[in-house]
Design a binder for these strands. Structure first.
Lengths: 234, 234
DNA sequence: CCAGCCCAATCGATCGATCGATCGGGGATC
DNA sequence: GATCCCCGATCGATCGATCGATTGGGCTGG
């Protein structure tokens, strides 16, 4: 349990946030970079600067920690997607989903990578719950694609394959994008939205999509889904 | 003591190959499904039906095994890509790459998944060699995309991002496709080739791509890259 | 104000289990 | 008897997790 909301002890507490949040952050980083099974409980403690036994004052088992991380990240994506206006045309809806997904994966690559790659380390019941959340999120995409296809805006050979391909392509952003690189977040999201529309046989000019995304004004949505956006670079 | 299974005689070995090949196959399966670090040496031995110490008669370390598996799979992809005729037009070349990549990932999902997901478990020097092979393979894609862009066949906002997106999208096949499902390999590869061309602003009809792939006649190429397997369709 | 107590927070020590890997020897075949 | 397979036993290291003990700030009753 442990309710930590403010108290810092020990001198020299340079790190930001409470101990519990530090643990969470270190776990996200280690799980994303080395993998769940390759991350030792002592490594995690060392990254936080505490003894390994102290970890268990703040968390349950190591797997509990992984589960909570994945649930949290999954829910953020679902929250963001569900905030999209329901009466958008298919084109705008799809662009919005791409924007939210790519923005999340670009600015929080570790959280999203853990969800994308480490679900298999969950046991049966937790895996089922995690998959359920993932499926709920993918339904937003399935609905948008179906809408566009029935209305004639999109044209694809196979809707399910198109959905899988789009999600896979957009998730890849977490693996390579760096905010310190030469591509801005604005260009990145626009480029992916353009590729997504093209893949759905609905090509649009880059500037057109840029304006479309500007009009959607989704920055408040991602800000609500990922509140404590860190000032740290990376 | 009677041996449980796996008569060793060389005269054609009943269902499974030699012990070394059995180990390789079991390792590919376990590394792909559970992950490298989550796979124990005793699990691996049990899957083959031998004692864990016997493993070391056939292999080096566990990491040696992973390295060999990734090198092998990477080289097969490079071999296949390098067999594509150098004087194909960009459209046909790109379709050929998609075909080879998707076919490989669909028919050998575990080998390819290990390469795609477990490279990080390699140590520094081996990781560097593995990444080098991966980069060499991606160069085939970069060249095809560049050719198409300079010749006006393709049009993308960012060639590098397009390449990454295409590869990510095609690699995803390993994660969901089942040869026992309702989608044939022929439809799968054609659908992906169509999506790839569309993404590159070079839309083509499904039937057109089907014929294009038929004309390329790439079955001998994949058969050469993955010899000891069953290639029936197309 | 102080005495007494509580409790979050931390650590060192250690648990049983499992990890990857090694070694010497047994038994079969040629 | 030499070679090839294979296994039981075992190594040191590390795994995730728990234990008892200590610390110190904050709250309470007097």
């Amino acid at each position: 349990m442990a309710r930590a909301s403010g108290p810092r002890t020990r001198g020299g507490g340079v790190a930001t946030g409470g101990t519990e949040e530090q643990i969470r952050r270190a776990a996200v980083h280690l799980f994303a970079t080395r993998g769940f099974h390759a991350t030792g409980i002592r490594q995690l403690a060392e990254a936080v600067g505490i003894n390994s036994s102290t970890l268990y004052h703040y968390m349950g088992t190591k797997e509990d920690l992984l589960f909570e991380i994945t649930q949290d990240s999954s829910r953020r994506l679902i929250d963001a997607a569900s905030r999209l206006s329901p009466d958008l045309n298919p084109q705008a809806r799809l662009c919005g989903l791409v924007y939210l997904h790519v923005w999340s994966h670009a600015t929080h690559p570790e959280e999203t990578a853990v969800v994308d790659n480490e679900l298999r380390s969950l046991d049966g019941e937790r895996l089922a719950r995690a998959v359920e959340l993932r499926d709920r999120y993918e339904d937003f995409w399935a609905d948008a694609i179906a809408d566009g296809c029935t209305s004639g805006t999109f044209a694809v050979q196979d809707r399910r394959i198109a959905r899988i391909a789009l999600l896979q392509m957009c998730s890849g952003v977490a693996g390579w994008y760096s905010t310190s690189g030469e591509t801005s977040l604005r260009d990145l999201t626009t480029t992916y939205a353009q590729m997504a529309l093209s893949l759905l046989s609905c090509s649009r000019d880059h500037r057109t999509i840029e304006r479309l995304l500007d009009d959607l004004d989704l920055q408040p949505v991602v800000a609500a889904a990922w509140p404590e956006t860190t000032p740290s670079p990376r």
